[in-house]
Design a protein around this nucleic acid. Structure first.
Lengths: 337, 337
DNA sequence: TTGAAAGCGCTAACAC
DNA sequence: GTGTTAGCGCTTTCAA
């Protein structure tokens, strides 16, 4: 079943069928009608592979994430897919699962499938990824960590805004010993959050002893371990800010195990504002970094580079704001026990 | 950059390049070496689209799910992708988001991209999906709801096993008023769970009044509403079994709002055993339906049909067991208040 | 064992 | 406005 069958059935040439399908305006309406009828009757679907082969454009974007089972990512995947469909793009999704091998494999697959661009939304390994992708003159979009190169876009997350709001919120509740559960050590996006936290604390004249910053690895397990460590401190923090929501969930979970009640005995604030945040017990106050907005920006960054005739020499930048979302995981500080 | 460039660079014909890449054993090792060298030096990647065009096989499987942001699905997506990579398959993921239009769209895209098979793991709409896919002589795999047709596989979930274990567990804790929060009304997989529940209750000589079965729509919000309804009953249940984990999470969340403590005042059991189940507060006892095993079965079902010379006239069946996983959301019944 | 050439399904240039 | 045809990058006969 191909374009020829339709042509035969509609008694036109294959070129006319092709034009009709592609809605070229010069086709005689009467012929077009015959063609659509034939398409309908025979249940014909154009072969995208063949189209790609001749046009050179696959209308596929790659989306590389760290791990779908991390609740941070599905919101992005969902939104990215949504927009992709609108623009008649397909998406090739892949998780690196924090594995170098998997990641290189992913890159190879994307290139072989002729993707028109790749969005890289991962925790770490972006440099290695770039290494493999940079010479392909492929549009790329990163979160924060892309180099200033043609065809490379960056979405800059404005951590400072939301984090400042969060610190001010905690300070106004009377908290002074505020801990920060960071991401994996050395991760740029994580370091940016720590820095923003330190700045915001300094603005409020609050101290941040070294012991008050611990790594949570951006995972539930990491949050568990981080709070275990914090709880063992001679002077336990009365509030904890986390580098992302799932480590905050881990913190709350560990607090629960230790008989420490959130928010009565401990205030917790997450980051990302994943959908789940509103459903945990207690509902988690978090700093929103809109996943759908992030996906939207990433998609449009790619699309812009696909359509741009001559690339920007230093790439393109986009900005995404963050803001505090109040729920029930924070409460006024009261001297405990 | 194509196969001709490699041929030129290695001073062989394109046929030899093709054979080398495809590891046809009759290629002279010396030539093969030259070819690989050229491939390496030029950074060549074969064009999958072109390969697909001639071979007729895309090595892409479609995976249709309801919604990535529903925590039940990522585990399946992850595992499916994992196996796909092993077998050098690509996966085209799409969410129907419970929308008929989206779903039809998804089917069209899959066909246009020449997928070699489709795994349908959705809540509902399978009949409509089938309608569109059945005449394409495409391997299909469903959970429970596929018709007995050639090229259609089914993974039969053995609900009864785990549900019986759960009911027995609750009964042994002294619970008699056990409610069931079901899935969307009319959903086959949901109805199967209700039936299994009723059977198991009957075995223990426990009654199931109509008011004790309420719909939870397989969502957190649904669980919220379901338990609101159950809590308002003159004789409140002392235990609730849920048709899936996220509605169980909704139930626990509503109980929290109402000041009902889990598990002291209310025992809760989920279904699916999603990864999150172990991290909620309190950790959720659940009936495991292994998502990775499910994905594995689905993938192999598709693969088997792709490779099978003559299809089974009535399709193929696979079985997946379920089992109770004990955590902390259940406790002995004690007369309350 | 290797190469020449046909053709996979489609688009687009060109001729009518 | 429509048809003919070359060719996208590859695999696979077929002949040498």
């Amino acid at each position: 079943m191909d374009i020829r069958d339709i042509a035969k059935h509609a008694k036109v040439s294959i070129a006319t069928v092709s034009r009709t399908i592609n809605r070229v305006p010069t086709v005689d309406p009467a012929l077009a009608k015959r063609v659509w009828k034939a398409i309908d009757e025979l249940g014909y679907y154009p072969n995208t592979q063949a189209r790609t082969l001749v046009s050179g454009k696959s209308r596929i974007f790659g989306l590389i994430i760290s791990d779908v089972t991390n609740p941070f990512f599905p919101g992005i995947v969902q939104a990215f897919e949504e927009i992709a469909i609108q623009y008649d793009y397909e998406i090739l999704l892949t998780s690196t699962v924090y594995d170098q091998q998997r990641m290189e494999n992913a890159v190879r697959r994307m290139i072989e499938r002729q993707v028109d661009g790749v969005a890289i939304v991962t925790f770490g390994m972006e440099e290695a990824l770039l290494e493999h992708l940079r010479f392909r003159k492929l549009p790329l979009v990163f979160i924060d960590v892309g180099p200033p190169l043609p065809l490379v876009s960056n979405i800059r997350i404005q951590y400072q805004i939301g984090i400042r709001q969060a610190v001010q919120h905690l300070a106004s509740l009377g908290h002074r010993r505020i801990a920060f559960v960071s991401g994996p050590p050395g991760l740029k996006s994580g370091d940016a959050r720590i820095l923003a936290f330190q700045n915001a604390m300094a603005e409020k004249n609050l101290e941040v002893p070294g012991a008050m910053i611990v790594s949570g690895h951006h995972s539930i397990e990491g949050g568990l371990a981080a709070f275990e460590q914090l709880a063992a401190l001679p002077e336990r923090p009365s509030a904890v800010m986390c580098s992302n929501d799932i480590s905050a969930i881990g913190v709350m979970r560990k607090a629960y195990e230790l008989g420490i009640q959130v928010p009565r005995d401990l205030s917790v604030i997450g980051f990302d504002d994943i959908r789940l945040a509103q459903f945990v017990i207690p509902p988690l106050t978090s700093i929103r970094m809109s996943q759908s907005e992030l996906a939207r920006l990433a998609f449009h960054a790619l699309l812009a580079d696909v359509e741009r005739a001559t690339p920007q020499p230093k790439g393109t930048e986009y900005f995404l704001t963050t803001e505090l979302v109040l729920r029930n995981s924070t409460a006024p500080f009261e001297s405990q026990t």
